[in-house]
Amino acid sequence: MRVIKDNAIHEDNWVLISEPSQDDELPGGDLIVPFDYWKENQAICKQRDDKTAVCINGDNNIAELADHLDQFQLIALEFPAHKDGRCYSHARLLRDRYGYAGDIRAIGDVLRDQLFYMKRCGISSFAIREDKDFEDALKSLKDFSVTYQGASDENLPLYKTR
């Protein structure tokens, strides 16, 4: 999967399985599976030789994942449309409340002009929509050099430094 991470463009081995068939075995390789699938098939996911990550969407209850965070190197947040903002809250809960320290990846309708906010909410890698210019999207992480409110990237509000 091609992503923006650590201010650069990376290609890594994660593959998103949007609709795993319940009967078939999962293919090999590092996979991102839907939250509902993971819930039903936790044993299968644990036994795999390769890494398994989970994909959360706005409808999912992130609290159900809270006790299992250790097993994931990556948690994907799905933005079905760029204007669906629920996963911004999911990201903040993962970072600020549940203390998740792994990679949080935005997938779906991920566009340049949302990256700055996503980054502030604790999202750490961005699977930009494939038809978009990744180089161009990189620039947006520097849109603002000052922010007013605390968030997952910078906990303290600006006024504390005034």
Binding site: K83, Y88, S89, Y117, C121, Y148, Q149
Partner: peptide, 14 residues
């Protein structure tokens, strides 16, 4: 105003 300006979590509300 300052808290809500470019609030990263609440810029794509319903």
């Amino acid at each position: 105003r300052q808290w809500s300006t470019f609030h990263p979590e609440f810029s794509y509300l319903p």
